[in-house]
Design a protein around this nucleic acid. Structure first.
Lengths: 341, 341
DNA sequence: TTACTTGTTTATAACGTTATAAATACTGTA
DNA sequence: TACAGTATTTATAACGTTATAAACAAGTAA
């Protein structure tokens, strides 16, 4: 490495200008060479790339963003009580994994409890804080989705809506319910109870419809737990389960699409002296390794949240690249969780 | 609102220039007025603020960043298998809560499995991707800390090191161990086993030393589980516990500073036919609501991760403001978890 | 020789902000 | 009325990048 290069290297943070000074090219040329512009001679591009590598050049995101208007940021919008557990972490893992090979960074936006859910989204869109965003916990008529479609801002949702076509990823919750019912019926259970998701979320309807259809098909009784959902606190769930389990016509088969919620259901049943596998059966949704630690072992159908994160990121990147939104979606298929651990 | 203002408002994204055109002031003046510069007349500052509010002006982060070199970003560096569960989520909640009232955003950096832990940190520092960073899982001689101190880059660690003074937040794990031993001895247990953290982490030593001192003080036997730690997979823990519990001199009291790990311990004991509360006792560390769902109920000492996140953010912001690093630290005191739920 | 390609490089300006230094307006005093 | 001194505002330049349009060089056809 020549003296000139050496001294430049030791000076301040390397920029395109540094490369220009070393190579004797214009900054514009350097910029276009780095961008891989075909109109820059092959030789020149190689030389620029070489020098860039040598001096450890990294593009300045702030400058790029100011100039191009693109921020190279993906925002994940979480609500304040977003899953105490696992859920967001796994999803973040999945998203980060995909973004790692790109120029994108993941920024978390967690809105405050006292703040309307729309505010952070408007902020992101209006101030272009990100190039695209990922929405969790979708509702059938979701005002956030309506707003984003109106503005044409790239986004993807975890969960479908009943609105016009947009990119989404969802888990087949109707299939989940059907599989769970079949398993319980197969074990001889005839009075099934579903602990449903909170009514406002999209998958509440899918889950209930799948459940309704399946119990009807098998000619067994299907109850949807009243007064509590998997989105309530574990305490509330345990309490609600105790009440139902002690009632006149107590269920003999439970379905609970939430891992921690299932722990709460189990606690409630145990509190009533009911033994799982003998007096009742329980089918849960498993979203993490925790499910393997239940004793007695948990009967569970798996939902891969990390994969969901990966897929969400890929769908969003495709959307940002300009692919047709109507084609960008994916439905995750439920599978029984392995019985090992 | 006058016609002129109206038309400007409807035009493109409002900038300081928009405000300048409306008020007839120079852009420089607007900038300084917005910054609250005392040398700008009171009246002018009020007027600028008023117009800014009216047209919905929000400063452009990219431009600020390019000009000032400050990014208004805090980076949280996670390792690839950073807690499958809860841990990071709660911490993120805490951090976000504090940052919400500031101009800072939280960016997650999760390094890839095949990437050395130093790489993302060097990238952040060299390219000034953030104004400060939060490190989890500290080691006694932590190369990341060494590098950051050398470069003078603001940071805070979760966990102490044995290096020169720097901002940190830690949980008093020695006190945790002492409290746990006392509880078990009080319950008549004489052969205590500790499932330790992985040796490389700082709190391994604190935990072991607290344990060692306490068992010595009470004249009981203290074993540190060999071959597995709370940072291994639940499967490995369950397996290791089974082995120890079936051994010649099986422990009658267990200490496990991890919530999910404790579930795994419990599973292992159950697998060996040992009943908690009768044959053995277990004291765990509780870091989330999940702890309340164990049946039989878990005896646990609480560690408030969300508070840790809040404190970490506050310490880092103080450090960025230029406060003396040596004074910026906090030790969290263990408390017994409430027995309700 | 001129004109016209084709291939390659470059000057200029701009994104929105702020630090610096300079200019202007205002005040009170000589 | 002039002058210094203070209060307030402003012009200029720069941060690092890239879009646009223009310039240049070399080669080819007329």
């Amino acid at each position: 490495m020549s003296d000139a290069r050496e001294s430049l290297r030791l000076a301040r943070k390397p920029t395109q200008r540094t490369i220009a000074e070393i190579t004797g090219l214009a900054v514009t040329t350097v910029s276009r060479a780095l961008a891989g512009d075909e109109k820059i001679a092959e030789r020149t591009r190689a030389q620029v790339a070489e020098v860039a590598r040598e001096i450890g050049y990294v593009p300045d995101r702030a400058a790029q963003r100011l100039r191009t208007g693109r921020s190279n940021v993906i925002a994940l919008v979480l609500d304040p009580h977003s899953e105490i557990l696992g859920f967001s972490s796994s999803m973040i893992s999945g998203i980060s994994g995909v973004l790692h090979d790109t120029t994108f960074h993941l920024v978390l936006m967690q809105y405050a409890i006292d703040e309307p859910p729309m505010d952070p989204i408007r902020r992101i869109v209006r101030n272009r804080l990100a190039d695209g965003l990922i929405l969790a916990r979708t509702e059938p008529q979701d005002p956030r989705v309506a707003y984003l479609m109106r503005t044409g801002f790239p986004f993807v949702t975890h969960g479908r809506t009943e609105m016009a076509a947009h990119p989404w990823l969802d888990y087949d919750n109707a299939a989940f319910a059907r599989m769970a019912v079949e398993r319980l019926v197969g074990a001889g259970r005839r009075r099934l109870a579903l602990v449903a998701p909170a009514p406002k979320y999209s998958f509440n309807a899918h889950m209930r419809e799948g459940f309704r259809a399946a119990v009807a098909a098998h000619g067994v009784t299907g109850l949807v737990a009243q007064g509590f959902t998997i989105h309530d606190t574990p305490g509330a769930i345990t309490c609600g389960v105790r009440e139902m389990a002690q009632g006149a016509e107590a269920p003999d088969g439970w379905i609970c699409p939430g891992e921690i919620a299932a722990m709460a259901v189990q606690a409630g049943l145990t509190d009533c002296g009911q033994v799982i596998g003998r007096d009742v059966d329980l089918v849960a949704k498993q979203t993490s390794e925790v499910g393997n630690l239940f004793r007695p072992r948990l009967t569970a159908i798996y939902e891969d949240i990390e994969e969901a994160g990966r897929r969400l990121a890929q769908l969003l990147l495709a959307r940002i690249r300009g692919e047709d939104p109507a084609a960008l979606h994916h439905l995750q298929i439920p599978v029984w969780a392995g019985e090992d651990g």
